[in-house]
Design a protein around this nucleic acid. Structure first.
Lengths: 233, 233
DNA sequence: CATGTCGGCATCGTATACGATTCCGAATCT
DNA sequence: AGATTCGGAATCGTATACGATGCCGACATG
């Protein structure tokens, strides 16, 4: 998931050997659980309970949750508590739209920088996507789709833009678990569009043309697929 | 500073009458001081001292700092402490570049939505910019420049994109204090470009054309002006 | 004089404690 | 029965306390 580009200082991991603080452990764990869907939107994050599970007091847990809140993954209301942020149709749409622009930007900025192996790697992922379609494995397809896009955007040297893209993916991840995020009617054209984008990159097309292709690809995904309906715990 | 667009849920202010938590007070204060330059990059944020000043213990202060860290305004190293994040030439460039893309996106998305009074307000700001140039008031000029851009981007209904733009501005604010952020040779062309953008909006030009105009306007600002050299306290 | 070691101080990191607030169900009233 | 009030449990918000860590200057040593 971590690409070639530089990360913004504030987000950079603190150096290697030092033991991470408890607050960082809590952040990582909660973050991962939210992103991988273990905690779905609306899930109540009770500080005490999390603290007990992670064998720490509430203080570091609160800090972790503050950070998640700032990233938009969690909502935290005074005297009420924290929940995994819901993602509604509007936010979903806005995130997709934003992603369409920033991905277009990132990939066009990276246009001259792709090595043959970058393109090969992306193509390999796309081939796997075709296979996952044949196997009718929507979960795998969705994961590979993110991998494909990240493979391309990670080459962009602009770390700030990369962070924005990360944030978008994190938000979308909250509903990626849902099989609704896989739209069968879009799957085949989508994979073909990937090939088209790779072809543009390989032939050294005008970055602006690549940008528009990427944007159109993203925006082609219908908005309609936000249906999740699970009662919140 | 708050525009017409919706804010993302997580960032929304908690309702009106409820007293803000101490942690929120601390966040607001530190945030404002960083953005308005009271605390310049590299300034050491000592938890104890801040707590005493705000008449609270370190716990809420730490939470506030975590949030600022997530926004990239502060760096926080284990057992070392927190500082206002430095902004180096690379991050500055990347932020400007990102802003050029997302502002272009926001304004083109808002293209059909500008009312006559929106345009008039922006034009009024731009006229003030001309005046501030005549007065040679770089601080005012710089502030008005941000106001002009926000006046246009705030009309964009995409809240996620709006949050991204906010984040970019906050990062840039850390060096806006420096007179270096005012490049005399760019000032006149910049104001003229503003008029050009407004004209495109008024004549209902193709959003993509507006997008490219905005992007070019932003990118025309030279990178060179990052020279700050103050010893950190 | 340059360098290395030690000790104390400043500061961080987190546990614990406790008041404040909200939620929820039971008892009461109409 | 339905609405209302009340009380306790759950949970949050923050202060305080204290060990852990890093910084820096004093001192010793070559």
């Amino acid at each position: 998931m971590s690409g070639r580009r530089q990360r913004t200082a504030a987000v950079a991991e603190s150096g290697g050997t030092i033991a991470p603080s408890k607050s960082q452990r809590a952040y990582r764990l909660l973050h991962d659980r939210i992103v991988d869907g273990t905690y779905s939107p609306g899930f109540r994050l009770v500080l005490d309970a999390i603290g007990r599970e992670l064998d720490m007091s509430v203080v570091p847990v609160r800090e972790a949750i503050r950070r998640l809140e700032a990233e938009g993954l969690v909502t935290f209301e005074r005297n009420i508590g924290a929940r995994v942020a819901e993602i509604d149709e509007l936010e979903y749409h806005d995130t997709m739209e934003t992603l369409s622009y920033v991905e277009g930007a990132a990939i066009s900025l990276a246009a001259g920088l792709y090595s043959a192996s970058d393109v090969a790697a992306a193509r390999a992922i796309n081939d796997e996507m075709r296979q996952s379609l044949a196997d009718f494995d929507p979960v795998r397809f969705t994961a590979l789709n993110e991998a494909f896009h990240r493979q391309l955007t990670d080459v962009c040297p602009n770390g700030v833009l990369g962070d924005v893209i990360d944030t978008c993916w994190k938000r979308l991840a909250r509903l990626r678990q849902s099989t609704f995020s896989f739209v069968p009617s879009r799957a085949v054209p989508s994979v073909d569009e990937h090939d088209g984008i790779l072809a543009l990159i390989e032939e050294g097309a005008d970055p602006r043309r690549i940008e528009l292709a990427v944007r159109a690809h993203r925006l082609a995904t219908p908005d309609a697929y936000l249906h999740r309906a699970q009662p919140k715990p």
